[in-house]
């Protein structure tokens, strides 16, 4: 499974790089008991209602510390993206996209640090925000443009509730519930 995804996405280019996959994608990805006590759960939401495709993938790059597997390929569930294997460090979301009919759409996040790029110093649960892909009007023959705007919905708590479905009986379930209780305070 991993090799097929890698072939599809990166063989033409990122031959030297390996994606860190948060599990396989034959069904909804279920979180695992952390093998590494330093890993964090990172999640957010991208509203693609103005995009030509739904959210099919989102990739985050671990910039520091350097890693042989610096890319995180986030599982997606109806616009929500999440990954429970994120190591401490400085991270940048690089691109997202989706699959249309015989067309793959890739959108790059703007160069430089963006609001959703997490800096993770200690293990925990990190909500990077909810965002909306906004289409920018261009001329008929011009390349399509877009912007990304932060939105208030879904809220962190709403997404945490959705994440419970994928936490099973792992420690993540308790951590998610603790976080929800913290928000309610």
């Amino acid at each position: 499974m991993k090799s097929k995804i890698a072939t599809f996405l990166i063989v033409p280019s990122l031959t030297a790089l390996i994606l860190s996959l948060c599990g396989c994608f034959s069904g909804p990805y279920m979180m695992e008991e952390p093998k590494n006590p330093m890993t964090s759960l990172v999640f957010g939401y991208m509203d693609m209602s103005e995009a030509p495709v739904g959210l099919g993938w989102i990739i985050m790059h671990q910039l520091q510390p350097e890693s042989k597997e610096p890319y995180y390929f986030f599982p997606i569930s109806d616009g929500m993206f999440y990954c429970d294997l994120v190591e401490p460090g400085i991270h940048k979301f690089e691109e997202f996209g989706g699959y249309g009919y015989r067309t793959e759409y890739t959108f790059n996040f703007p160069q430089g640090k963006n609001e959703l790029d997490p800096v993770i110093e200690r293990p925990g649960i990190y909500f990077v925000g909810s965002y909306k892909y906004k289409k920018v009007e261009t001329g008929f023959f011009e390349q399509g443009k877009f912007s990304i705007a932060k939105t208030d919905w879904p809220t962190e708590k709403e997404l945490l509730e959705r994440l419970l479905e994928f936490a099973g009986d792992t420690i993540w379930k308790k951590r998610i519930m603790d976080r929800m209780a913290e928000i309610d305070k």
Binding site: M1, K4, I5, T7, F8, C24, F25, S26, G56, Y99, R102, T103, E104
Partner: peptide
């Protein structure tokens, strides 16, 4: 373009 992880033959 099919997603490779759907496991189609010849993907």
């Amino acid at each position: 373009m099919e997603k490779a992880d759907h496991g189609q033959d010849g993907g």
